[in-house]
Design a binder for these strands. Structure first.
Lengths: 124, 124
DNA sequence: CATTGATATCGACAGATGCCAATGTGGAGT
DNA sequence: ACTCCACATTGGCATCTGTCGATATCAATG
């Protein structure tokens, strides 16, 4: 079950290089997002009313089989991007906003690279 | 060469579901970040002085061979995360801040899911 | 122009990944 | 208890991916 828990970190990528451990953990999360079906699953769940969607909502949105959807959901859950809850016959998935926030903050290099605060502007 | 160009989009994931096209394009970018070596390469380049790093800086930071680093750089360049410039014998890589900003904004669901602005709070 | 140093490409191979059909499981209704 | 439905797991298969050694390219230098 719980494979990923440490959500304390992270300074943005532009701060200092990721050590091997953090890189390995974060890479697994990005890899989970690195499949078009899984990325659409996340977007469907994130934008679904009530912040959650059942598997039946998802299988209806794809051409792939139900076992394949189930497999992708398992991957997304293992890396900590989704949680699930069973209610009656249906299983509802919702995103973990803390994880999304961590990734978003990690990729936010706006302060360090784009504006160049005078004095170190883009090398040369 | 230029495989990815359309950087106009995107509303955050929580807005509306990604269509198949956008999902496919973005998934390729996330997949590129979904390898620990590549993620560390991005972090090293992003945090390197002057905003750029040459290949020699990178090969020194990893246990993998120089061809492997070169391969990973090619992947990161193809999806639009890095650009390269040759100066004399050295090739300098730098990140594409617009791409980072796009991904960061895409994953930023803080307005829609985490804070629950009264009225639609995370279901229940 | 031969040499050297930095980087890219090629070819091959083990291991990972995505997919499906078949089957298992767990809850709700009859 | 039997059955139906929603979902998960298993097993197998074709394809993709990361890695390396060998080799090619490209730029500076002698």
């Amino acid at each position: 079950m719980e494979l990923l828990e440490t959500l304390e970190c992270c300074s943005p990528l532009a701060g200092e290089p990721l050590d091997t451990e953090h890189a390995a953990r974060l890479a697994r999360v990005f890899k989970a997002l690195g499949d078009p079906v899984r990325l659409r699953i996340v977007s469907i769940v994130a934008s679904h009313g009530g912040g959650e969607a059942c598997v039946c909502d998802l299988t209806a949105s794809f051409d792939v089989s139900q076992p394949t959807i189930s497999h992708h959901l398992k991957v997304l859950k293992q890396v900590g991007l989704l949680t699930s809850e069973r209610r009656a016959s249906w299983v509802y998935y919702r995103i973990v906003p803390e994880m999304m926030a961590e990734l978003s903050a990690l990729l936010d290099v706006s302060g360090a690279l784009s504006v160049s605060p005078a004095g170190r502007g883009g090398g040369r």
